[in-house]
Design a protein around this nucleic acid. Sequence first.
DNA 1: TTGTACGCGTTATCAA
DNA 2: TTGATAACGCGTACAA
Lengths: 372, 372
Amino acid sequence: MTRRVRLAEVAAHAGVSVSAVSLVMTGKDAGNIAPATRDRILASARELDYRPNSVAQSLRKQRSHAVGLVTDAIATSPFAGRIIGGAMDTAAERGYVLLLFDSQDRREEEAEGMAELARRQVDGFLYATMSLVELATPPPTTLPLVLANCYVGGEPTGGVAVPAVIPDDLEGGRAAAEHLLALGHRRIVMLSAPGAGRRSGPGGFPIVGNASGPLRAQGFVAALTEAGVARPERAVRVCGWDIDDGYAGAMAVLAGADGQALPERERPSAIFAVTDRSAAGVILAAARLGLDVPRDLSVVGFDDQEALAERLSPPLTTCALPHRAMGEVAMSWLLDGLATGGSRREIVARDAVHRLACPLIVRSSTAAAPTP
Amino acid sequence: MTRRVRLAEVAAHAGVSVSAVSLVMTGKDAGNIAPATRDRILASARELDYRPNSVAQSLRKQRSHAVGLVTDAIATSPFAGRIIGGAMDTAAERGYVLLLFDSQDRREEEAEGMAELARRQVDGFLYATMSLVELATPPPTTLPLVLANCYVGGEPTGGVAVPAVIPDDLEGGRAAAEHLLALGHRRIVMLSAPGAGRRSGPGGFPIVGNASGPLRAQGFVAALTEAGVARPERAVRVCGWDIDDGYAGAMAVLAGADGQALPERERPSAIFAVTDRSAAGVILAAARLGLDVPRDLSVVGFDDQEALAERLSPPLTTCALPHRAMGEVAMSWLLDGLATGGSRREIVARDAVHRLACPLIVRSSTAAAPTP
DNA sequence: TTGTACGCGTTATCAA
DNA sequence: TTGATAACGCGTACAA
């Protein structure tokens, strides 16, 4: 165990004062320290393997260069962890480190978790959620704050909005629908998922609920409406987020009471599933019914979930959630704000909520509609 | 923005000395501070909302009560993030906070990432990997260290082994096989995955590779051998980890050259897939072939992956990877070690590598073998 | 029982 | 161009 080397030891080793070493280590030596002295100090530092103690630096400079990463379940979620990757890389690039607090959906613990991190003198917070949710109230902190994958609904609290970076689920839904329409599909069903249900733990700040299902459906309906499809709202069925939900939904739509596939004209030629998992259920249902994807049925998913969308048989056409980009952009905003003074208001000076595109990834689960 | 309150301000407010406040705040007031004074101090602290500055505490006490959580891709992985959950809860319970560094599989960055955290004065490290891997060399640090979901292969370096907590994949594989055998299956195929391929980035420490596939296969073969099944090694096919791998593997085993399902006696009555994802592919293949699960084919997976195993149609019988427990146990070891002196040797005093059971979760994808 | 003084490792100010 | 010294906020021996 190599002992920790203090700055003072480097000074002694090089035969100079601590301030000289400090100036050199912080790069403020230009015009202050003779090059020869500088080199001697650097040599000593290297030889002793000196590493500045950032705890002491934080105390002295009143800046920790650490930010709190607070998440609801993201560190344990199937795929949204990419937000962490983006945030971490961006932070590391700029010399920041991440203090993690994941409430694992016990929202009432978030307040004390954030308080603990504040006690640790984090310079600001990134608050990220597993799925797109509307928060009824901002996370409880007075430190600089940026949201990722969530946003504060309603009117700005106290006149100051909380900056947020979220995916553009609505446009994603529209893109998915337009892709199918362009392929000639007209009998299209969307398997959606329930929207906002108000939730909140005791002592936790309230959230309004998952918002992405309805948004995707809204974009879907808009596209169908513009294409002149009659009564597109009826094409939306509210099922759920998971494989079994997609399976059940597809069965209900594709099969008759006898459990056999309906005749081609009576069943949809394409299904837009609200998640890749749901789409996996659809593909499974199609297989059970003897329907070939994409010949008999086109399927579009949403999320571009790792190890799923690309690996299905056939590989799934889907809308990619820009998780990594959300992490990067949100962290950039936060650090920019910290650099230029740190007041939350300055961060907000940009758009309060910024939407990132969900690009459509076309794979093999979609094909032209059968010609009538 | 409520200004930060220092201990000195509390002292002034309560009309006492700083040391009195300090004694009370650290709980060392018994027999030192008059109860009345104590209450006055507590009242002032509450009123001013005083929070001890842990940066200053760390500097003074030379302990940060922070540990570095270093991961290869875990924060961004489909399911292994449960390790983080377990580690975080255990740490929080004991007043520790987590500094996150995720290399996102860029192993050459781990050394400098850990160095940065060491600079931040973390008291120790938890090193966790996404999948069970054998490391050729321990992560580069002299601080107390515990591994989760990975272990250092070969002889202990420098005479001191690195403590590790890993899943017992071998016993899991055995349990899966025994479950199928108990159901009367004899024609069982395992769809395994390739094992250790030596990897390493420039400057990164080498790892030997993923070890769980071969271990699961080894347990599987052992069970079959004990049951008297002939040539069980031939029952293992090396495919891959993902849905498409399982799909292809199942097709190869269940279907003939014409793409139709083989007659019952010529195909396996049960398939053990190396992961739940692979098992999903198997189920999909069975559906395409018109085979019913579990009537015509029993399927067992491995991992108990969230939002997958339980949500498949039918819900999947599988071996649960004890991710959360690994995080908890590994963190407990680390913190115990830190408490009792902190030398790595003391942590090792327990077993160097501890294997956690992978309990079999029986759901609906397995049933008795068809009677001959 | 309370208060004083010093140290933790660093940076910033100011004098030499 | 350098070096001594005072903070940063807290913990703790030791003196009062």
